[in-house]
Design a protein around this nucleic acid. Structure first.
Length: 157
DNA sequence: GCCAACGTTGGC
DNA sequence: GCCAACGTTGGC
């Protein structure tokens, strides 16, 4: 089989909860705790080698701060069975888990973030779901063209 | 299946 | 704190 081009994604996290520096220290992480079906379904489409922008949300300023890479896919999210976790799901059965997620590795932190303000200046809602006001998706697919434009901006800052 | 009420996200 | 934009829930 010919090697596949990587797909691009954007994943949001609040830096107070889990930020790019946490990932840099850990080197890799299981992206658990996602409880939104559309976001989960996007995660199920991920392939090893896919590139993922790390977006800091609910902070000042919000924006893309780094890059990650998918290293494993379709892993059971353990927090759904953990009664102590805020992500515990009593409806999920071990024989048929509802929630799964990928494992991601740290690739880089950009010298300067690409802020939401700059993203809004560069892209419009048709191009990038992210800029839709009130968007609640924490996992967002990014077309290759847009990803390349984002990378181009980030590497030319 | 419809839809109103409610809850959450997250920028501002 | 406000509120837009959803997703979820539950009565019918």
């Amino acid at each position: 089989m010919a090697s596949q081009e990587p797909s691009y994604w954007l994943m949001k996290s609040e830096p107070d909860a889990y930020g790019i520096n946490d990932l840099k220290n850990e080197k890799q992480t299981l992206w658990d705790g996602i409880r939104n079906y559309q976001a989960r379904n996007f995660m199920r489409e991920m392939k090893v080698g896919d590139q993922v922008f790390f977006y800091h949300s609910n902070c000042k300023p919000p924006g893309i701060v780094g890059l990650m890479e998918v290293i494993e896919t379709h892993l059971v999210d353990p927090t759904q069975f953990d009664k102590e976790s805020k992500y515990f799901d009593s409806k999920s059965k071990k024989s048929n888990p509802k929630w799964d997620c990928p494992k991601l590795k740290y690739r880089k932190t950009y010298k300067k973030m690409l802020s939401l303000k700059e993203i809004n200046e560069e892209f419009d809602a048709e191009e990038l779901i992210l800029v839709r006001k009130g968007n609640r998706l924490s996992v967002i697919p990014i077309t290759t063209d847009i990803a390349k434009r984002i990378l181009n901006i980030l590497t030319n800052i």
